[in-house]
Design a protein around this nucleic acid. Structure first.
Lengths: 210, 210
DNA sequence: CACTGTATATTTCCATTGGAAAGTTATACG
DNA sequence: CGTATAACTTTCCAATGGAAATATACAGTG
């Protein structure tokens, strides 16, 4: 952070400290996200966070209730970034296959670029899945998956939930790859060769022409 | 636990407490596993664990070094059970397809039956992946995956790592499914219908006749 | 403007936790 | 028998999340 410890937005450095922060909720979210992305969730404490923003360690409770509430809010932000990352590049893709590949690469790219955040987002231990904002943000991401798999012809059966099966099949595959990669379970095969990229092992989903 | 709190194996109840436990390492492993499976990792504390076994809260340090060392040892045990679960039923399978399905079902069954343990086993935050015993146990599980995917003809290319691609493809798929299922991400689709089983969405891997 | 309720933030206090350090007891081995 | 070492205990500490009571700012309302 640029101005040292107890600086607060809108407060000149000579000016005496304000009682009200003014934008504490957002400041906590930003600082919390920063700590998580840089040092990992294990290093995030309410006290360190509060200190970074210049408030007492119980101040976050007003806005987030508890540690879990804070992390849930950060996780929700994560899901919004996640959806954006997947949608990014989707516009330039013209064919269904290109769109599938773009979204898939976005999924993995986000997971690798934000490993701690990614982990938190999918961990019910850390995020409250009943939280409305969180649910909405997660749904926003899931919608991308739905849109992508709508064009796929992988499951040709007539059963009513064929579409759903396709979604879960695709999701399982991509999510598993990203998770194993982040857990260091893929790249440490003995031969030292680089691990296959996700497109190298993508199952053939087939594409509807319509 | 049957005999109350401070009982130690081989100690009659009237007898005064022994200084040396005798089999502390295994007792801690068993009690730790029990707590994790029943109450989750979050509820496991060195103090509670030590109390359950009847020793001081610093006693575990002699055998495991730290909390992470203890959890790593439990994770290793998990991987051994995991391999056994996958191999179980494998013997009765005659065809390659049956073997694939049996192992896959074993993977998911273990994950669902031991959600906390499964989570820990694949979390570098909780298990030390450099630990020798842990690595060996994990490898034991991975070997099952290798054996299974050796019979698959999914990746027909001649490239030298085609076999490896098949393994990772299969692993990603199964692991993703199990992970998402345990995270409650699959079964809570709106329509209330039961989620597809893993065999319902298994990609077609094809089988070598040899 | 004064008054008051409510949101925001602080201070103080507490139980719990993992671990470090030093001391105690048993065991193994010469 | 005696001594090194392994196995445990006791004591101490800093860090953490949170509860409770208090202080400060602010937004309406009369």
């Amino acid at each position: 952070m640029f101005p040292p410890e107890r600086y607060q937005s809108g407060m000149s450095q000579t000016e005496t400290k304000r009682y009200h922060h003014g934008d504490l909720r957002n400041a906590l979210l930003r600082a919390g996200m920063e700590i998580i992305e840089r040092d990992g969730l294990a290093r995030l404490s309410l006290r360190a966070l509060a200190a970074a923003v210049g408030v007492s360690h119980t101040a976050p409770k007003n806005h987030f209730g508890s540690m879990k509430g804070l992390v849930t809010a950060i996780g929700a932000q994560g899901f919004r970034k996640f959806a954006a990352e997947m949608r990014n590049g989707l516009t330039q893709a013209s064919t269904r296959k290109e769109r599938l590949h773009a979204a898939t690469l976005g999924y993995v790219r986000f997971a690798q670029g934000h490993p701690e955040l990614f982990k938190i987002m999918f961990s019910p231990d850390h995020c409250d899945r009943e939280d409305t904002a969180f649910k909405d943000a997660a749904q926003e991401s899931y919608r991308v998956l739905i849109e992508i798999s709508e064009g796929l012809a992988w499951d040709k059966s007539e059963a009513p939930n064929a579409q759903k099966r396709t979604e879960i099949m695709l999701w399982s595959f991509v999510h598993g790859y990203a998770t194993l990669l982040n857990a260091g379970r893929i790249d440490d095969r003995a031969d030292g060769a680089p691990p296959p990229g996700i497109l190298d092992i993508m199952p053939d989903f087939g594409y509807l022409d319509r």
